[in-house]
């Protein structure tokens, strides 16, 4: 399989311009990775709308959860998918239906077929990346945990959002 590559400027632009993230597979349990990501992205100023049939109608981190993407009444900028690669297809179909401009599959998740379909409609697709980790990496925060961000810069500010 071809190695995925997304330039830093592209990820940075997405994270700067997007405001609303629909998180498919957001968990109600505080010790699940999706909960970690949701909480962090909220702290960074994103509105995160959980999509989880089992939690539909209930709240996660102060946001009402929906059963599916198509139930969300608001405009969605990013669909962030926490689902196994082989279960991504129908979710991407929904994301295309609601006109989400960015479709983002989490770390270890990749479905080239679904991605090609979405890209054909003009959507941007990011796979096998986590928006929390990418935000932390490009803002320098990930380096606080000794992680190799691969960001080399002589500039003072790595701020992503105003």
């Amino acid at each position: 399989m071809k190695e995925l590559y997304y330039p830093d400027w592209q990820i940075r632009r997405i994270l700067r311009e997007a405001n609303t993230i629909a998180m498919v597979g957001a968990s109600q349990s505080w010790n699940r990775p999706s909960y970690f990501a949701m909480k962090y992205l909220q702290e960074k100023g994103f509105r995160v709308i959980p999509v989880n049939p089992r939690a539909a109608g209930e709240e996660i981190l102060g946001e009402r959860a929906y059963a599916s993407l198509t139930d969300i009444p608001d405009k969605v900028d990013i669909v962030d998918i926490f689902r196994r690669s082989d279960q991504v297809g129908p979710i991407v179909d929904d994301a295309i239906e609601i006109g989400a401009p960015i479709i983002w599959m989490q770390l270890t998740i990749r479905n080239d077929e679904a991605a090609a379909k979405a890209e054909a409609t003009g959507a941007t697709v990011i796979m096998d990346r986590c928006p929390k980790i990418e935000f932390g990496r490009l803002s320098g925060e990930l380096g606080w945990s000794g992680v190799n961000t691969k960001v080399i810069t002589s500039r003072r500010s790595k701020r992503i959002r105003a």
């Binding site: 505080w30 970690f36 962090y40 380096g143 606080w144 945990s145 000794g146 992680v147 190799n148």
Partner: peptide, 29 residues
């Protein structure tokens, strides 16, 4: 959030410090 490891940041130098993490990232690189 910090104690739960849900966000990145410093709590106490025994587990993290900006001078030390600069070194960690450099050697990782």
């Amino acid at each position: 959030s910090l104690f739960n490891l849900q966000t990145f940041g410093y709590i106490y130098t025994r587990i993290g410090n900006p001078t030390i993490s600069a070194l960690e990232e450099k050697v990782a690189s």
